[in-house]
Amino acid sequence: MRDDVSSWPVGRLLSVAARLVERRFHDFLAAHQLSHAGLIALHHLTPGPRTQRELAAACRVTDQTMSRTIEHLRRSGHVVKRADPHDRRRMLVELTEAGDAVLAMAREKERDSGDLLGAVEDYDRFREELIRLITVT
């Protein structure tokens, strides 16, 4: 198989690598009662509480999609909802200690574990190259 892979074009290599990493990451997230959307939401809650609408905008999803994500995160104990002290009609979504811990674990697992990225030797350089690949037009 290794000889066959070495003949693949870059596009196919990227596609297969993305699917493999996504599957590994999905398995990790599922084991911690998270989804990709939930992980993104937790990331956007690290600066502090946000309204559902603010969180939806930060995650670039609809309010309805964010509502489902928040409810799943709430049931899993990763976030809480509470009334905004400045406007009791608004609800704020806030990261819990459990949510903060699982986010830290996911970041560590991504960066330092061969389980998710496999053979990546220089995480920072790899990440920079991916960003450049995505953002350079």
Rank of each mutant, 00 (worst) to 15 (best):
residue 21 V to G: 02
residue 97 E to V: 11
residue 94 E to R: 10
residue 95 L to P: 00
residue 13 L to P: 00
residue 114 G to M: 13
residue 70 I to S: 02
residue 10 V to A: 15
residue 31 A to Y: 03
residue 11 G to L: 15
residue 45 L to D: 00
residue 47 P to Y: 05
residue 69 T to V: 14
residue 100 D to A: 14
residue 104 A to K: 12
residue 137 T to G: 15
residue 89 R to C: 06
residue 9 P to R: 06
residue 40 I to R: 11
residue 79 V to T: 14
residue 120 V to R: 10
residue 119 A to R: 14
residue 65 T to I: 14
residue 56 A to Y: 12
residue 101 A to V: 07
residue 19 R to D: 12
residue 36 H to S: 12
residue 90 R to T: 08
residue 11 G to M: 13
residue 2 R to W: 09
residue 130 L to Q: 15
residue 112 D to E: 14
residue 72 H to L: 15
residue 69 T to N: 09
residue 110 E to T: 15
residue 11 G to S: 14
residue 58 A to E: 09
residue 125 R to V: 06
residue 92 L to M: 04
residue 75 R to T: 03
residue 115 D to V: 01
residue 7 S to Q: 11
residue 39 L to G: 15
residue 87 D to N: 12
residue 75 R to H: 11
residue 46 T to K: 08
residue 60 R to M: 04
residue 137 T to H: 06
residue 74 R to T: 07
residue 6 S to H: 14
residue 112 D to W: 07
residue 71 E to G: 01
residue 21 V to P: 05
residue 79 V to K: 11
residue 123 Y to G: 02
residue 117 L to W: 00
residue 3 D to P: 13
residue 92 L to Y: 04
residue 92 L to N: 00
residue 80 V to R: 09
residue 88 R to F: 04
residue 46 T to W: 01
residue 108 E to S: 05
residue 22 E to S: 15
residue 1 M to K: 09
residue 19 R to W: 07
residue 136 V to W: 09
residue 131 I to F: 08
residue 127 R to A: 13
residue 62 T to S: 13
residue 41 A to V: 00
residue 20 L to K: 02
residue 128 E to I: 04
residue 3 D to S: 08
residue 38 G to K: 06
residue 81 K to W: 03
residue 118 G to N: 05
residue 135 T to H: 11
residue 88 R to W: 07
residue 136 V to Q: 15
residue 94 E to G: 02
residue 133 L to I: 03
residue 10 V to T: 13
residue 103 L to Y: 11
residue 28 F to Q: 03
residue 70 I to A: 01
residue 41 A to H: 01
residue 109 K to W: 05
